[in-house]
């Protein structure tokens, strides 16, 4: 059940991000919902599931839009793993922390992609990219985190309740 719902989330996210989200782009920037999904899963379920979700979201993006298999997969796995490390240390009902962490994740992720695939090819105008891509995308993603995290959190609660009954955990 959990696997099935997670797969549906991953596919819907990919479909939305590659088609409909382009209609609401602001100055050519769309929110990075993939990272929101990966970080939310990592925060709700821990680093293993974060890494697994990261693997499949990245693989989809690589197959359909990348030039080599494994590029986005690698970054998404690392994001899922690192942000899942602290999932025992905070209250998941809180909304501020997921928002902050998603913003941090999007910013770091895009900065690393910039360094690896643009800086090394001679694109040195970091200030332009900072003000035209990185910061708008971070803010836009941060706002998008609220509804998405609400949906994922609700689904997770429902699934955990079902699993409790199923495995008679109490």
């Amino acid at each position: 059940m959990r696997v099935f719902i997670t797969a549906i989330f991953i596919i819907i996210n990919f479909l939305m991000q590659s088609t409909v989200l382009h209609y609401i782009e602001i100055r050519g920037v769309i929110p990075n919902t993939t990272i929101i999904l990966v970080v939310s899963y990592a925060l709700l379920r821990g680093s293993t599931e974060g890494a697994i979700v990261g693997f499949f979201t990245g693989l989809l993006q690589d197959i359909f839009f990348g030039t080599s298999i494994g590029y986005f997969t690698l970054f998404n796995i690392i994001t899922g793993y690192l942000f899942g490390r602290g999932n025992h240390d905070f209250y998941r009902e809180n909304y501020i922390l997921p928002m902050m962490l998603c913003a941090v994740a999007v910013f770091l992720y895009e900065t690393i992609i910039y360094i690896i695939s643009f800086l090394f090819r001679g694109q040195l105008n970091f200030i332009y990219i900072l003000s035209n891509t990185l910061l708008p995308e971070t803010v836009y993603s941060c706002i998008f985190t609220i509804p998405l995290y609400r949906i994922l959190f609700g689904t997770n609660e429902w699934l955990e309740l079902k699993e409790k009954y199923k495995y008679r955990l109490f």
Binding site: F14, Q17, S18, T19, L21, H22, G28, V29, I30, N32, T34, Q61, F64, F65, F72, E110, I113, Y114, S117, F118, T133, E137
Partner: peptide
């Protein structure tokens, strides 16, 4: 055209 790159860096489409 049926889909565009989900990221903000590249301009690839299907």
């Amino acid at each position: 055209i049926i889909a565009k790159d989900p990221g903000n860096w590249y301009d690839v489409f299907l």
